[in-house]
Simulated scan of single mutants.
Amino acid sequence: MPKEGIDLKARDDILRFQEMEHLLGLFLDLGVTKVRITGGEPFVRKGLPDFLIRINQYEKLETINLTTNAYFLEDTIPLFQKIKSGSINISLDSLKRDVFYKITRRDDFERVWNSIDKILLTDLNVKLNMVVLKGVNDNEIVDFAMLAKSNKVEVRFIEQMPFNGGHFSNDTLSAEEIIKTLQNSFPEMIEHLKMCSTARIFEIPGFRGKVGIIAGHSRTFCSTCSRLRLTPDGTFKTCLYDHGDVNLKDMLRSGKSDQEIKTAIRDAVSKRAKDGFESEQRTQQIIHFSKNHLSMAQIGG
């Protein structure tokens, strides 16, 4: 979230739960089998648990996944044990209280870590996402990786991207530099090939969990990316860097048929850029990231 905050949208300007359920049904008809609820923090929105329970009944939906900052996580663990949970991705950028505060501007590290501690005791598939900020938390890379030694967790290191709410540093620590840091401490680290994954996954002998690297800035995974994104205001994006030319909320509310909406989805996917760089070039003709401070709170992680 940018320090100055973002322009809040009126309630009528964002998708209602019923509309999200309707659109999800259309995506399932088109072959989607996995959904991820992101944010901002998803559980800020009232009614989310009931929404998850309802979409859990969709027969074609194989897994429900969530990205969260873990602030509300402790109370929702029983919910995830009841639904078709895929992965619970937890955003945590530091293991140090003062650095956590610097990044989040919230003094909630103990609450967040206690929730993480509890969910690691379950059989749920947990991933910890750390955005590596050069000169801020990059000295914690090995400490984060060590969390995978005794815990069945996937610790993932993410390149700093233009959507972090305002740059902490001008220099991005590349995926290759992060891998080199890990290899210096874990020379026996072995890459585990996984198809259609945005992360490069590595196994370390003797570790219960794994480590992963997501090259979100250098975008080396674009050729295998199959993700589609729907923002809170209904904008349909085929890439994180995509501006989005189709608004599915507006189509729904203007009375467009399900077939017309499916056609619009197919057309957008058919025009998908070859990679994130092309998407960014298209977008910069319309809007400039650095001037508008777009953040994951607006786009969805």
Rank of each mutant, 00 (worst) to 15 (best):
P2M: 00
E4T: 05
G5Y: 04
L8R: 13
R16P: 00
Q18T: 06
E19R: 07
L24H: 08
F27Q: 02
K34G: 05
K34M: 10
I37F: 05
I37W: 01
G40C: 08
K46F: 15
K46Y: 11
G47K: 10
P49W: 01
F51Y: 02
L52K: 07
I53D: 14
N56C: 01
E59N: 11
T68M: 06
T68L: 02
Y71V: 11
I77G: 01
L79C: 03
K84F: 01
I88V: 13
N89W: 03
N89E: 06
S91A: 12
D93Q: 13
S94N: 08
F100M: 09
Y101P: 00
Y101Q: 06
K102Q: 10
I103W: 11
T104F: 12
T104Q: 12
T104R: 11
T104S: 15
D108I: 03
V112Y: 06
N114S: 07
D117P: 00
K118T: 11
L121H: 12
T122N: 12
N125V: 07
N129I: 13
G135Q: 04
E140Q: 12
I141F: 02
M146G: 10
S150P: 03
K152E: 14
E159C: 08
Q160M: 15
F163Q: 00
N170E: 09
E177R: 08
I179M: 05
I179S: 03
K180M: 14
L182C: 07
L182N: 08
N184G: 11
S185D: 14
K194T: 14
F207Y: 08
I213Q: 04
H217L: 02
S218C: 10
T220F: 02
T220Q: 04
T224G: 04
L230D: 06
L230V: 02
P232K: 13
G234M: 11
T238M: 15
Y241H: 12
Y241G: 06
D245C: 14
N247Q: 02
S254T: 10
G255Y: 02
K256A: 14
S257C: 04
D258Q: 03
T263E: 15
V269E: 10
S270T: 03
R272W: 03
S279Q: 05
E280W: 03
I286K: 07
I287P: 02
H288F: 04
S290E: 15
H293I: 00
M296F: 03
G301E: 04
